[in-house]
């Protein structure tokens, strides 16, 4: 069963069309990247999914149908605009938000204790939220998103304001949740995090789908006709190679149209080249993002 199914949604505010035509579906237990440049319509899409905005056209199915009040308790949402009650103690703030998600006070208290310790916030639980640093508030926000054990988590820029240690903490947590069967939708501009975590992505631009599918498929689709080779010493000349380009300490061999990577590997081995690493040259997600948005905008 699809956890989320967004089908041809359209949304305008006055004369501004925020979402023109966006569709995607998300399987249970996957980490899904919702990507796009600023103003692409990501946040509006998320708000439509959460029934905060009604779409002008199109349909959204969440956890097997339209979003209901009961289903809201099965979703965790961390919006881009972080927000917690600033003038009340951290623990009270998180317990209240958990209670709105249907968690009993005893259960919430027990779970919160574990998360506060894990995120190194236990000693700050009685402090007012406004007395916490930005990074601490970010962690608290994340706890509030997952405390009720949601089946679907939507996080907007989850790594913003976090130091590398906490980024790792969050990444580990997301992987852990995926193993437990939680579906995660992540919207971020940090492409290397997407490459590391996401199974599939949708890239939207100007309110429309630009790229959609499994991350590896997309990278393969955007792969240039080239291989990256690392060798212990000079590489011998190989037939069928149009160009040799240095590439992050390795060598990138751009192949002629009729040459296959296997032809090159065979030729290198035949010549006794000291090859340590040989792989198809895959573009980074950053490169794909820039290329796709550039082509889409052209």
């Amino acid at each position: 069963m699809q956890t989320v199914e967004v089908s041809h949604i359209v949304k305008s505010f006055g004369t501004t069309q925020a979402v023109a035509d966006v569709s995607f579906s998300i399987e249970r237990g996957e980490i899904f990247g919702l990507l796009g440049p600023n103003g692409a319509g990501k946040t509006t899409t998320i708000r439509i999914m959460l029934d905060i905005f009604k779409p002008d056209q199109g349909t959204v199915s969440i956890l097997g149908g339209p979003l209901t009040e009961d289903k809201k308790e099965r979703i965790g949402y961390m919006p881009e605009e972080r927000g917690l009650y600033q003038d009340i103690p951290l623990e009270r703030c998180l317990l209240y938000l958990a209670s709105l998600k249907g968690l009993s006070p005893a259960e919430a208290r027990q779970r919160l204790k574990g998360y506060l310790e894990r995120f190194d916030l236990a000693q700050h639980k009685n402090k007012k939220v406004k007395e916490l640093s930005k990074g601490m508030q970010q962690k608290a926000q994340l706890i509030s998103t997952i405390l009720h054990g949601p089946e679907l988590i939507i996080v907007d820029e989850p790594f913003a304001a976090l130091d590398p240690i906490n980024v790792q903490l969050v990444k580990d947590l997301m992987r852990e949740l995926r193993i437990q069967g939680t579906t995660i939708i992540m919207s971020t501009h940090q492409m290397h995090q997407v490459e590391e975590l996401c199974d599939r992505i949708v890239l939207i631009n100007k309110g429309r789908n630009l790229l959609y599918g499994a991350l590896n498929d997309i990278r393969r689709r955007y792969a240039s006709h080239a291989v990256v080779v690392r060798a212990d010493g000079e590489l011998p000349p190989v037939a069928g190679v149009a160009e040799v380009v240095p590439h992050n300490g390795d060598v990138k061999l751009v192949l002629r149209e009729e040459t296959t990577p296997q032809d090159v590997l065979r030729a290198l081995v035949a010549q006794g080249a000291p090859v340590e690493r040989f792989e198809i040259a895959m573009p980074t997600l950053d490169e794909i993002f820039i290329r796709a948005v550039g082509e889409g905008g052209a």
Binding site: E69, Y77, E81, R82, G83, L84, D87
Partner: peptide, 20 residues
């Protein structure tokens, strides 16, 4: 206005209905 200032409204709306 305070909830708005604290930007907590969007989180609340993902948990309770506006009428509630």
């Amino acid at each position: 206005a305070t909830e708005k200032k604290n930007r907590v409204m969007e989180i609340l709306l993902s948990s309770v209905s506006p009428r509630q």
